[in-house]
Amino acid sequence: MILLEAKNVHYIYQSKYQKVHALKGVSCVFEAGKLYAIIGHSGSGKTTLLSMLAGLGTPTEGAVYAGGEPIEKFGVERHRRENVSVIYQAFNLFATLNILENVMYPMQLSGKSKKAAKEKAAELLNSVGIKEAAFRKLPAMLSGGEQQRVAIARALASDAKTILADEPTGNLDTENGRIVLALLKRLVREERYCVIIVTHDLDIAAGADVVYRMTDGHLTHDEGDSIC
């Protein structure tokens, strides 16, 4: 089942001094129950593509579809709330909220009651291996791996079936990287999540079901066949 699709997406951003054509007609599909890896050099457009898929940017040309519907039509905010979750290399947890509150946050945005959100958050934190004793801690009090697991729990809290991960292990040691990756794989295998990982790490790419390579705004299969 196709959860997310990019069709001929172009993205040009113009700064004060230059005009950059970051995405040059990228088309791709992302299905449930698959782990995708997007690899490429810095500046190749990987993060920009992730941004378009997350509805955090509007393509200059082309469109992103979720469930067969353009996300603009669906509503980009709603898209971000209901269709996709994003986890980052830098974790990006709310520094002033404890980890339980961090996980509760998207659920409260969706209108869940505080009690229900709290229960679900606790459950999700447990599922990513965070013990209850740490629930009241602020993110800064946790290790990088733990923070990233909290970020994954927060991503799961929104019920979105697509997880966009931008270098999720980039700030983690090998062990924690492995745990996080295992977690994401489990979500793909057991809960049929679609996980799209933007990474430099070829080991991660090697474990993916589909590998895309981003080169100068063009997206190709790792084998080198352009899919545009």
């Binding site: 951003y13 993060t47 920009t48 992730l50 941004s51 997350a54 955090l56 940017g57 994003v86 980052y88 290399q89 830098a90 990006n92 931008d166 270098e167 700030n171």
Partner: peptide
């Protein structure tokens, strides 16, 4: 500010 750019950077 580009959200993704902002969030992709550790800081």
């Amino acid at each position: 500010t580009e959200v993704m750019l902002l969030l992709s950077v550790k800081g």
